[in-house]
Design a protein around this nucleic acid. Sequence first.
DNA 1: TCGATTGACTAGAGCGCTCTAGTATTGAAG
DNA 2: CTTCAATACTAGAGCGCTCTAGTCAATCGA
Lengths: 341, 341
Amino acid sequence: MLTEPSGPATRLDRPPTLEDVAARVGVSRSLVSIVMRAVPGASQATRQRVLAVAEELNYRPDGRARLLAGRRTRLLGVTLALNNPFHADVAEGIYAAAEPLGYQVVLSAITPSRAASRALESLLSYRCEAVVLLGALVSRKSLGVLAERLPVVVVGQRSPHPAVDVVRADDAEGMRLVVDHLVQLGHRRITHADGGRAPGSAARRNGFRAAMKAHGLADVSTVIAGGEREEDGAAAARTLAEERLPDAVITYNDRSAVGLLDVFARSGITVPGQVSVVGYDDSQVARLPYLRLTTVSQDVAVLADCAVRRAVARLENEPVTDREMVLAPHLVVRGTTGPAS
Amino acid sequence: MLTEPSGPATRLDRPPTLEDVAARVGVSRSLVSIVMRAVPGASQATRQRVLAVAEELNYRPDGRARLLAGRRTRLLGVTLALNNPFHADVAEGIYAAAEPLGYQVVLSAITPSRAASRALESLLSYRCEAVVLLGALVSRKSLGVLAERLPVVVVGQRSPHPAVDVVRADDAEGMRLVVDHLVQLGHRRITHADGGRAPGSAARRNGFRAAMKAHGLADVSTVIAGGEREEDGAAAARTLAEERLPDAVITYNDRSAVGLLDVFARSGITVPGQVSVVGYDDSQVARLPYLRLTTVSQDVAVLADCAVRRAVARLENEPVTDREMVLAPHLVVRGTTGPAS
DNA sequence: TCGATTGACTAGAGCGCTCTAGTATTGAAG
DNA sequence: CTTCAATACTAGAGCGCTCTAGTCAATCGA
């Protein structure tokens, strides 16, 4: 049976604190703090002794106390909808971008039982220094109030409020790339199954029309109602299959394209043989070996990186030229587009 | 131009504290704390005055300080892989289950750049009282060390360690339901495209074999290599299409079924005409109107609820009979299964 | 009339850390 | 030998809250 080693009474049943480590090493709490934070002010020898004891006691700095005591929290809040693959991708990018800059990220999920305002509230209560909004389902007014308090970065969609930063891809440019690609392949009768009221849908729709017009194809361009879900794409496909097929279809996003492709396959319509199909987002499904969907990449990692850099720039009072960062998307050509027959 | 109302000097540029509210109302900090926590000890009149001033000053309790000062944090940590739809569903359920019980949930993402151990570390640093592990990518040893410190609940898969709680669905039972259903429809030659080394794959494979044997169909049952991704199902479909098709195929999960169905559709194989297909998980894709995948539901909301209840039971020292909670899955019959031809 | 009880409120000691303003202890320059 | 600066370390005041142990007045039963 083990007996407690001699030394100051150890408070049982509670995680060890700086104080415990300090007592064991025989130095002050401050010194241990210096060592744990890896800041200058301790000799190499002490550093090692402290680290050894910390390890031995299984000491783990208390995040709550750190956050409270420090003059800064270096906390980046992120709101996201868990079931949204785009949000998931961006959030991963945010982690990757934030940690090297010395910022921690805190996630706050938006769910059916937890509105965006609640999610935000919780981030604020931990005194995040800035927030990145992925599902910006917040009213203009509260966005304004929020932006007065701390830097706010909205990712992936426009934002009405002049005080928030925006990082998004250029939807018009994305559509231009797609249309150019299709026209170059010899297609003329091109249909866009739009995103309805989904974020960016209007911009993509307008971009599509403009690009078609630029090629003198305004009269053979069509926009039909779509949506952001697989079933919306499927519905669009059924509509299209009823009449003469266009040369190519551009969907609002990859999810919609997946539904559309599925219905085409079941209807015996070959892709890209009878019709070319282009998605949007370059999400994981687009890369599936059996789908190989031609699509537009918004480069999520870069998007996330820009969002983090912008938030940090605001926090560290670096000069910022424009509040909106519009990134150039790029076309990813895979197997669902081919030459006109 | 507005002038600051008379009263104690307001510290600018810093969020208001309890102290600020107390000073403004003319009561003690303790009283305001009592009001903010909504515990007994203040008169109705004072309560209203305090609340009014708090609102006026836009006071927001400081989560860090709360966590630090309270004798309990009532924090539930959750590790999850953001890109995993199953994790996302469970996490949503955890939020829904935890808040009514007075617990807050903290998410910690496992990403390529952030190992499970890091995710866990961060949860511990905030002094979560218990953790729910969704991607239990933690070594047995560290799982043991962890479980010594706080209640650990693993969701959706078996766990080797005797000190952690497990909440999962009964895979053997799920497979039995599927096989019964298919046999009842008149199918005999049934193939299972398994999940390889994915969690639960072995249990489902064994369950499949046992169920087939129970029907005296051991000699017409086949297991082929599959996986957990769409492309694994697609690969399995290509294998199957090369030879004589079985009467029905059961995949490891819905994602795999999606890939398999896609390849079948492209190969002109009709479902359920030529072959019936059953997935597993009843994830969102299974419900897509154009897919209508027959599948096994693990009832994620219930899974999440059980996980939370178990964690809370441990924390509040309620009696717990068995460390493993095995829930009965149920079959969801949709459009991909039909009578034998 | 008087102790006892109750309700409303306050004082003050933490929680575990960070960080400023120090105090010793060196070693080198003048 | 003094002076200066640098290095190694410590004391102690917070950070914003919770919570125990009170105080004080009003009410009540006997």
